[in-house]
Nucleic acid binder design. Structure first.
Length: 201
DNA sequence: CAAACGATTTTCT
DNA sequence: GAAAATCGTTTGG
């Protein structure tokens, strides 16, 4: 079942981030169907979060899509190389978003390997926000796309993650956010080999 | 209009 | 473990 818009249009972006664990991100275009279970996320709490692009109500052409109603994609280019895939949440004019940091490949694995120039399935194929975007064929052209299909969507396949297997921790790569860098806004599935091994655990 | 930087990954030592 | 790669966005002149 594809997640309804009401899943995203909630006030607590941190809760949405934790509930996205175990859901399945699907892209399906050019006849290439790929899907992966979300195993790691981070919440970005809009204007009050120093780590967010929209901190302090900053509103530019790049961040404009974060101010949309929840349920759309926000993809942006980092370090000139990597596309980072985010899910916009909350209501219109409130720029909350969830960064999807890692997936466990489920379907269309040969396409993922091809996109990543890998011979066989290793955790590095989808472990990390830039890596999973490349594996799923996501780039900045997806920004603003609704996550209800047909090209890209998130579905619930009935996978239940036990609460004891959900770990909360600090976010990665946001040291510049000072005190907000300490917030437990990162969630991942315990012992899943596809969780990114980025420093800061 | 020019300059600096980043929610990262890969490669080399 | 450390450093390079690389460019759109943002900020300052």
């Amino acid at each position: 079942m594809i997640l309804p818009e009401s899943f995203y249009t909630r006030e607590d972006v941190v809760q949405v981030a934790s509930e996205l664990l175990g859901k399945v991100l699907v892209t399906n275009f050019n006849g290439e169907y790929t899907a992966g279970m979300i195993v790691e996320t981070e919440a970005y709490a809009g204007v009050i979060d120093k780590a967010s692009h929209a901190h302090g109500g900053r509103r530019t052409s790049r961040t404009e899509v974060m101010y949309s109603k929840g349920g759309v994609a926000y993809v942006y280019l980092c370090y000139g190389i990597h596309h980072l895939f985010n899910v916009v949440t909350h209501f219109k004019d409130t720029p909350h978003a969830v960064l999807v940091r890692a997936l466990e490949p489920l379907d269309g694995i040969p396409y993922m390997l091809q996109r990543r120039n890998k011979e066989k399935l290793v955790s590095a194929v989808t472990a990390g926000p830039g890596a999973l975007s490349a594996a799923m064929g996501i780039d900045k052209h997806m920004t603003g796309a609704r996550l209800s299909g047909p090209d890209i969507y998130i579905e619930d396949r009935g996978i239940q993650i036990k609460s004891k297997d959900i770990i909360a921790g600090t976010r990665v790569g946001v040291a510049y956010a000072q005190d907000d860098a300490m917030l437990p806004y990162r969630f991942w599935i315990k012992d899943n080999k596809y969780v990114s091994k980025a420093k800061g655990l």
